[in-house]
């Protein structure tokens, strides 16, 4: 692939935003975006695991699965790598930074089943990205996730004061906000000449 780092960055953050355009990681998005603090915690944890997972899965895919013709094990090995990493990160944070653990701790187990993480590593494998590109895609996808998560949390916090019909309260309301956000992001499509 000839993708330059700049186009990967624009793609990862805006044009192919994981939450709003590719629909990856939505469960955590609607679940955790009620307040800015937990949204920030979740995003930080996702960003961190995403970068680690991109590195680890690239090494496994290129040096283990491809040469041995084991590509059918891609999904299973990636999910095991992610589960491993999440555990590892949990142990390390708990050992060295208890305050950080207290704020991130509850989000870490959730990350294993966050489709954004598995999504980024599978996309890396499918797009044949090199090492730098993979890691960079991981970083930018994580940043895109963080940005939307914080935006959404801020809007939801502010909109708590709004009076909406009883039936729309909660999730439907969150989805309507997301609709507007997503429309803004879709217009980034036009930025890239086809």
């Amino acid at each position: 692939m000839e993708d330059s780092l700049f186009s990967i960055a624009v793609n990862g953050i805006f044009v192919q935003n994981f939450l709003l355009v590719q629909f990856l990681g939505l469960c955590s998005f609607v679940g955790v975006s009620k307040e800015t603090k937990s949204a920030a915690g979740m995003s930080a944890a996702v960003l961190f695991v995403m970068i680690m997972a991109s590195i680890a899965s690239f090494l496994i895919y290129t040096y283990l699965l491809l040469p041995m013709g084991l590509t059918f094990l891609t999904t299973i090995s990636f999910i095991i790598v992610i589960a491993f990493l999440v555990q590892l990160v949990e142990f390390i944070i708990r050992k060295y930074s208890p305050p950080l653990y207290r704020s991130l701790g509850i989000f870490l187990p959730l990350i294993t089943t966050n489709c954004a993480i598995l999504g980024v590593v599978i996309l890396n494998a499918r797009l044949d990205y090199g090492f730098i590109q993979s890691v960079f895609y991981g970083i930018t996808a994580g940043l895109g996730y963080t940005m939307v998560m914080l935006l959404m949390a801020a809007i939801r916090e502010k909109s708590n004061a709004l009076k909406v019909p009883e039936a729309v309260e909660g999730l439907p309301h969150a989805f309507f906000i997301t609709t507007l956000l997503s429309m803004a992001f879709v217009s980034y499509f036009q930025v890239i000449p086809t």
Binding site: L20, V21, F23, P165, E166, A167, V168, E169, G170, L171, P172, H173, A174, F175, F176, T178, T179, L180, S182, M183, F185, V186
Partner: peptide, 16 residues
Amino acid sequence: PGGAFMTIGVLMAMVN
């Protein structure tokens, strides 16, 4: 993508 979010929002509001 916006249409997807809107559709599920409307359907969920109807269910609620």
